[in-house]
Every structure is written in structure tokens, then in C-alpha cells.
Amino acid sequence: MKEHTLILLLFLVISIAIMGLFLVIFQSSKIENETGMQNPKKKRFFFFIILASILLVLLSITIPKSPYFQYADNSPAKVVYIAAQQYVFLSSFQAITLDNINTEAIEVPANEVIEFRVTSLDVNHGFAIYNDKAELVTQTQAMPGYINKLRWKFTEPGKYNILCLEFCGGGHSFMRSSFTVK
């Protein structure tokens, strides 16, 4: 099952459980003889301990999976330079600056670590890579004056689309590009 679907299912299951719990609590307020919650202090203690434990476990599992650590020890097989500007993405295997604006079709190998060096020549943009099933694979921001280095290993060959995911002006939703993985 895809990560996106798992996240959605997890959220829906937890949300329905919370709704159910609130419904039970609400229904319990319609009784004739009120007894209130028994041992609320004890229940509160365990409630907090369980919640804190869940959060700590989630932290320890998810932090190492952060994108900053992915492929950090690998040498990239290819370095792709991306410069965003209203409303295009320039891409090249050579550095792109305001003095050296160039763009070319990008083709990178599958199952190799690729490093994207992403910047912007004007305002903030997003650099989001979508596969041919329109699933968001990975992303970083394109910020003027800074270079964000995004590393990724593409396991599926094919055409990948690039969309801008940071609002950048009137043409934002039309800003796109693509590259090929072989």
C-alpha cells in the first residue's frame, strides 16, 4: 500500500475513533443517576503516560527517516541544477546563475542517487517531483539566494513532472516542467 494511502487511512481511523469516543461521552450525559467518571486522577495519569509514550515512539521512528539524512553517505551519480523563476523551471547539468542562464532536457539513470541543487532567481517557489501516476514523490523549496540539495533514488523509469508547490504569483498553477528517468 502506498504511503499516501496509509497516512489517509491512519488519519481516518483515528478520527472515527475520536468521534465515537465523543459520542459515547455525550450519550453518557443523558443518564438519570449521575455517577461521574470513576478514579479520574488515575485515568488521567495513564492517559497522559500513554499519549506521551506514543509520541516518543513516533518521534524515534520518524526522525531518522527525515529527508535530510536520506542518501547522505552516498555520492550522487548525477547532479542536476534547478533554477526556478516566475513561471518556469530551468534545469541543467551545469550551474545556473543570473549571469549564466541555461536550460536543457534532463535524463537521469534509475536506481542511482541523484542530487538536485535547487534555487530561485526571483521569489520563493516549490520544486515537487510527481511520478506518472500523479503521486508526489519528493520535494524541496526553491529560495532566492540559497541552494537546497535534494537527494533521491528513482526506482521506476519514466517521465516525472515538476510542479511548483510554493505560491509564487498569478501563474503559479501553470508553472511546471519534466524530466526522464531511464
Binding site: I25, F26, S28, S29, K30, I31, E32, E34, T35, G36, M37, P40, R44
Partner: peptide, 8 residues
Amino acid sequence: AVLVYKNQ
């Protein structure tokens, strides 16, 4: 929850 649960 303590306010509402099994309280009228």
C-alpha cells in the same frame, strides 16, 4: 470528558 461523562 470528566465534566460530561456520566454526568447529567
